[in-house]
Design a protein around this nucleic acid. Structure first.
Length: 492
RNA sequence: GAGCCGCUAGCUCAGUCGGUAGAGCACCUGACUUUUAAUCAGGUGGUCGUUGGUUCGAUCCCAACGCGGCUCACCA
């Protein structure tokens, strides 16, 4: 039996007293007819209006209370915001007022009343009836500082959402962003689909998967690290434009930019190229920013960011030469480039592939400096086993990553649709895996078979939704845009 | 996985050069019928993250552990 603090006992005694008095502390027959926002929309700009103009029926949680003996103000919060309610003994009756006096901050109440403006000018509801809808057994965090402890905010997100309006706003914006993306895709005739989250072969990305087991099939399954290979199978099947917004799972470290499950939009468009997707991405991002923020210029973590088009486009090499301290001749020479990488403090093995080496250097010297939206192109074939080789240079692929705020936000390429080439690339990945690279791609024979049937020339892209939301909500950590971020098990 | 920092009342935080703790808000009692972090008076509330060690005595010093934060590693 848990020892309860005096505060918690007081609340429980109030509930007991209600039951004893024949009052259900958890009724389910009150129907709010309005939201706080509707009252404000109707009367927010009116100076004078007569008492009893119109009756409003609202429900919400008590967030604050200022009592004066025979009258009180409470602040009520519902899903649309907050509104002040004035409760006067003479108006609701002595008996109801006595019950009202036992209400606590945190309780959920139903109010019927009419709008008026107080002496100090605040639009409020003047209560005619007040009713307890839910007795809360926990005190809410302090009104001035709110809840700031990050662990509690993540573990008890419900409390965070009650008392921190900024937190609530982030998740409202997140929902709007996802809806806008859906609308944009639908407007371009993309079909939203759902592909397996549990896959026998985890494909489509280089990452360590979570492993699980299906009892009835007695079969090992992996939580997906990407939907890519399934979505492209659909394009083979003739669904020429598909997209999916859903979770990926990667069994990797947790940081301010990484959560083990994160949300990705992936889409594939037949007969498109990666270059067209750059234009597409600019349009999509500008559409979303304009609708959500009302502007293309905004601030994120101290950086002014502008979505004004066109966005900068650089090859990996160009970015290294621009931001690193190395010249083209050195960069073209594998040994000199390796020496340079090591001089930067990178711990690289002597037999690292040249393509991987280039990417290591890029990430070390350039990526974090790319604050404004920048498309990085011409990735090494070696690190892009699902991308189409460039027609003029087989060492690079037709691929871009979009970097904003120093972070990778999107990854796209013209798809490799030559089944023979694809099979060879899988085999070289398997060789890497056998050498100990746990993140190398798995061989997927059925995917190769699908390509043998014929994948139209296609371009595809993945957009990290969490990171996009971070950008547009000026959030420092991915945990601030995920409702229930992964944490260790809570200890008592 | 490594380093650094943190963990004290429901919340936000002080503090104890080692002698078992305070404030504000919240809560309780009383006053107050237009307040805005309402006000005034009085009060309740703590195994100071856990477990060991040192000590006459530990919330404080030491160690291990737990949880969290940051940085790094990891992360096409």
């Amino acid at each position: 039996m848990e020892e309860l603090s005096e505060l918690l006992l007081q609340r429980r005694r109030k509930v007991d007293a209600l039951w004893e008095a024949g009052v259900n502390p958890y009724p389910n027959d009150f129907k709010p007819q309005h939201t706080s926002a509707e009252v404000i929309a109707a009367y927010g700009d009116k100076e004078q209006f007569d008492a009893g103009d119109e009756q409003y029926v609202v429900a919400g949680r008590i967030l604050a209370r200022r009592s004066f003996g025979k009258a009180a103000f409470i602040q009520l919060q519902d899903r649309k915001g907050r509104i002040q309610v004035y409760v006067k003994k003479d108006d609701i009756g002595a008996e109801a007022f006595e019950a009202f006096e036992s209400f606590d901050i945190g309780d959920i109440v139903g109010i019927e009343g009419f709008p008026f403006r107080t002496k100090t000018g605040e639009l409020s509801l003047h209560a005619k009836q007040v009713r307890l809808l839910v007795k809360s057994l926990h005190p809410l965090p302090e009104k001035f500082h709110g809840l700031t402890d990050l662990e509690t905010r993540y573990r008890q997100r419900y409390v965070d959402l009650i008392v921190n309006p900024e937190s609530r706003d982030v998740f409202i914006k997140r929902s709007r962003i996802v809806n806008l993306i859906r609308g944009f895709m639908a407007g371009r005739d993309f079909l939203e689909v759902e592909t397996p989250m549990m896959q026998p072969i985890p494909g489509g990305a280089a990452a360590r998967p979570f492993v699980t087991h299906h009892n009835a099939l007695d079969m090992q399954l992996f939580l997906r690290i990407a939907p890519e290979l399934y979505l492209k199978r659909l394009v083979v099947g003739g669904l020429e434009r598909v997209f999916e917004i859903n979770r990926n799972f990667r069994n990797e470290g947790i940081s301010v930019r990484h959560n083990p499950e994160f949300t990705m939009m992936e889409f594939y468009q037949a007969y498109a190229t990666y270059e067209e997707l750059m234009d597409f991405t600019e349009e999509l991002f500008c559409h979303v920013a304009q609708e959500v923020l009302g502007t293309l210029d905004f601030n994120c973590q101290g950086n002014g960011i502008s979505f004004k088009r066109p966005w900068k486009r650089l090859t990996v090499r160009e970015a290294i030469l621009e931001y690193g301290d190395i010249d083209a001749m050195q960069l073209n020479d594998r040994d000199l480039a390796l020496a340079y990488a090591r001089s930067l403090g990178l711990d690289l093995s002597q037999d690292i592939g040249y393509g991987k080496l280039i990417m290591e250097i890029f990430e070390e010297v350039a990526e974090h400096k790319l604050i404004q939206p920048t498309f990085i192109t011409a990735y090494p074939t070696e690190v892009s086993p699902l991308s189409r080789k460039n027609d003029h240079d087989p060492d690079i692929v037709d691929r871009f990553e979009l970097i904003i705020g120093g972070r990778e936000i999107a990854n796209a390429f013209s798809e490799l649709n030559d089944p023979v080439d694809q099979k060879e690339r899988f085999l070289s990945q398997v060789a890497e895996k056998n050498k100990g690279d746990e993140e190398a791609h798995y061989m997927d024979e059925d995917y190769v078979r699908a390509l043998e049937y014929g994948l139209p020339p296609t371009a595809g892209e993945g957009i990290g939704i969490d990171r996009l939301v971070m950008l547009l909500t000026d959030s420092a950590s991915i945990r601030d845009v995920i409702l229930f971020p992964q944490l260790r098990k809570e200890t008592k």
